[in-house]
Design a binder for these strands. Sequence first.
DNA 1: ACAAAAGTGTTTTCAGTACACCCATGC
DNA 2: GCATGGGTGTACTGAAAACACTTTTGT
Lengths: 242, 242
Amino acid sequence: MQGYDKYAHEPFAVTVDLAVLTLREGALHVLLVERGQEPYAGKWALPGGFVRPDESAETAARRELAEETGLDDVSAASGLHLEQLRTYSDPGRDPRMRVVSVAFAALLPDAPEPHGGGDAAEARWLPYDDTGPLAFDHDRILADAHDRVGAKLEYTCLATSFCPPEFTLGELQQVYETVWGTGLDRPNFRRKVLATPGFVEPVPGAARLTGGRGKPAALYRAGTATALHPPLLRPPREGRSA
Amino acid sequence: MQGYDKYAHEPFAVTVDLAVLTLREGALHVLLVERGQEPYAGKWALPGGFVRPDESAETAARRELAEETGLDDVSAASGLHLEQLRTYSDPGRDPRMRVVSVAFAALLPDAPEPHGGGDAAEARWLPYDDTGPLAFDHDRILADAHDRVGAKLEYTCLATSFCPPEFTLGELQQVYETVWGTGLDRPNFRRKVLATPGFVEPVPGAARLTGGRGKPAALYRAGTATALHPPLLRPPREGRSA
DNA sequence: ACAAAAGTGTTTTCAGTACACCCATGC
DNA sequence: GCATGGGTGTACTGAAAACACTTTTGT
């Protein structure tokens, strides 16, 4: 760290890449933009862009999300959860120049259709399971985002970030089931969530008619807790080790 | 991501910072270097340095560790565990220029005294609890490293990275107790570890006289498993939530 | 003999699971 | 009435916690 000189070292471009996840119609969806230029022209890619000189990576991520998707109101109002995943720095991950990219996962409650502003030719929600090969190393980043979110659901209250400000326990359970791809026992899920202080707090008399049929469900708000002790472990997949 | 031009954007310096942890005499120690220049001259800092144009951050981290500490043999032989923590990108975190730093945690089995080569004026192991304020935002990085390692001990086999190639279960338990700062029940710890397939495997007839006194302990090697199911949860601290 | 550390066994407790059941609403 | 989804009760099971106990070494 001696011999500081701004231009003594090869300059790196620093970018952010965003894996923006939401739930639509009970399925995990990802926000993708279609590339207009080479390389990977016509391919889908994660939204992202350069970090500006006066920005932290987190700030750049928020700005890019707003610019490229027109979802700035969302990021301000609802508590958009931004989570730094890791940094991808392989030389050659971008064929044009040396780009180091800080990747983030972002979780959105609902899915307003993005009106691609900024650079993006087109921005669109695509089902997670139905994303062809993405540009650059974005398949890897997206998979890492999914892994991270799935793991964090176990021991944090992150699931509420996928829900609107007021939600039913059934909706919260759907978050877990969709991200994990498993079914959960409703009574046990309910008890577990309510037994964790600060996970959710009831909205005093409110209830929601869920899709018309069925008993109206009580509404809850996200609580103040962030950690989840004890954790809500996902059921072990068949073909396990122990 | 349009309008690529190598010099269209302010160049960023990209560095790596390393939180190198080990256990000496039952206490967690950190590898620190003494800064010879302003800013923070005379202060202790985490080892680190610039990422070169042809390197990934991971490669740079390995190289810097070897250069600044003379521990290259260690990083090659024993399975040095390198874990990317996160990237620190606040503008102004380095007063001289715009530096984005990718932080890593490294876990070493034993603690050979470093002979500070490379840039570092002096490299030394210091007790984790006894590190004054460090240079830059390195206090934060170090705390993050400790948190991450503590959490990872719960659900991965990471603890073996702190142990020599062959170790006793007592030594393995000391890793947990030291990093977590808690005591664990020996019989239960033993059962838990042995019940997890692939965590450790016995070294067939070998035994080690532990400090002279006491019954010789059986020796184990690190197994092939990386994940730990079910997790080895740390005992809840007093003054808990539920 | 005693201390120190490894290793084994046993009881108790508690959280997670599975599943049966009741309630309120739309059709 | 019946289907659908919300909400409650309860018995069973398995793993973790607590602790008593044996074994093998050095001094």
